[in-house]
Amino acid sequence: MTTLQLKNIVKRYKSQTVLDDLSLDVADGERLVLFGPSGAGKTVLLRLVAGVIDPDEGRVLIGGEDMTEVDAEHRGVGMAFQNFALFPHMSAFDNIASALTARRFSKEAIAAGVEKVAKLLKIDHVLTHHPKALSNGQKQRTALARALVGSPPLLLLDDPLRNVDAKLRFEMRLELPRLLAAQGATVIYVTQDYKEAMALGDRIAVMFEGQLRQIGTPADIYDTPAELEIARLFGDPTINLLDVVPQRGPDGAFAELSGVRLRLPGFGPEIVGKACVLGIRPESIVFSEASATGAIPVRVEAETPLNEKTVTLTLTARGREVLVSRPAGTPGPATGPAHLAVNSRAALLFDKESGRLMRPSEPASKRNGEAA
């Protein structure tokens, strides 16, 4: 059983705190994605788990055993670094094989293992090449193959698809989960690509400034982001964020868009008169007839076809931008006046001052939640 526990980890470089009292549990066989902007501390955290660097405070437990003082080569960890870290004097084959050679596998087992993972990553045709003859994408896949070939119980992958072309990146998003599941490894995967995070993670841990700000399933992170910064990072097109001051009506709290009331199901009087930010995903908005209940009048400014979907920019009566996303081929106005219907059950409300998600006071089962 290979679990990972980080307990109150602190890492400083001079006066800068890079990891700030960070604690994290990763279950045996789990794929956890570390997601966040550049400089959040993701790579530092991986290197600390691998034993390349030491924490200033806190403990690292692997499989329940304290590894904080254990050297990197004795931790049983496989890692693909963002900067490749390939041996320049070795061929791609020998770079990949180094993990097996160090463990004294037979020549036959080494050859079989290298060829298997190289075919999966589509680099079997460059195994005789040295790193200087490889493209960045091939170097990245060689580093990934080296991490995978030994089937380590704990696998640390630092943005391994970053330099891979779009087609192969899409293919690998489909292939990697199957490969990692077959190996049964516990995996920590770093990325700045939210689609990759959603596709590869059993859970996602969102990092900002050396802290974990939210941990949850991909659906949890997307549907109920804990704060505005997280909401902005997930989604394409980005979430609509509108400043509102909720009011009280006969049917409960509501926000006003273009003079039309948008109900906020489940919220009570505690939000009335409070400065808030209303978050609405573009796919939670549809065009509607003017006569529909709760139809919100807007003006269509522009329409952008994006292969599988069409994104429309609209303006409310106050000139606030609202993006609408609909499947390609779905009819909708390309210009001029229009009306929108919003799925109020999918609307999010954030405290404007703190940026934190505000949760309804009523359980979801008691909310009416009609579209408005």
Rank of each mutant, 00 (worst) to 15 (best):
I9T: 04
S15V: 12
T17H: 12
V18E: 10
L19F: 11
L19K: 09
L19Q: 10
D20S: 15
S23K: 01
S23Q: 02
D25L: 10
A27V: 04
A27E: 15
V33P: 00
L34G: 00
L34Q: 00
G36L: 03
G36T: 02
G39Y: 06
K42T: 01
K42L: 03
T43Y: 03
T43H: 03
V44C: 14
R47Y: 08
G51R: 03
G51V: 06
G51E: 06
G51N: 06
D54K: 15
P55N: 11
L61D: 07
G63H: 03
G63Q: 04
M67F: 12
H74L: 14
M79S: 01
A80R: 00
F81D: 00
F87H: 11
H89C: 07
M90Y: 14
A92P: 04
F93T: 01
D94Q: 13
T101C: 11
S106K: 06
A109T: 07
I110M: 08
A112Y: 06
E115Y: 09
L120E: 09
L121D: 04
V126W: 07
H130W: 08
K132G: 08
K132T: 10
A133C: 05
S135P: 05
N136A: 14
Q138L: 06
L144D: 04
V149G: 03
G150I: 05
P153G: 12
L156Q: 01
P160A: 05
A166R: 10
A166G: 05
E175D: 11
L176G: 02
L176Y: 02
L180M: 13
A181D: 15
A182K: 15
A185G: 12
K195V: 14
A197P: 02
D202G: 08
R203F: 03
I204P: 00
A205D: 02
F208S: 09
G210W: 04
Q211V: 14
R213S: 06
T217V: 01
I221F: 02
Y222L: 09
E229L: 12
I230Q: 00
R232M: 10
D236P: 05
N240Y: 08
L242F: 09
V244M: 03
Q247C: 09
R248Y: 09
G249H: 05
D251T: 12
F254P: 00
S258N: 05
R261C: 05
G266P: 03
G268Y: 00
P269L: 09
V272L: 05
G273M: 07
L278K: 07
R281D: 01
P282A: 07
F287E: 06
T293L: 14
V298S: 11
R299S: 12
E303A: 13
T304Q: 14
N307C: 14
L315E: 15
T316A: 13
G319M: 13
V322A: 10
P333Y: 07
T335P: 05
H339D: 06
V342S: 04
R345T: 10
L357C: 02
R359T: 11
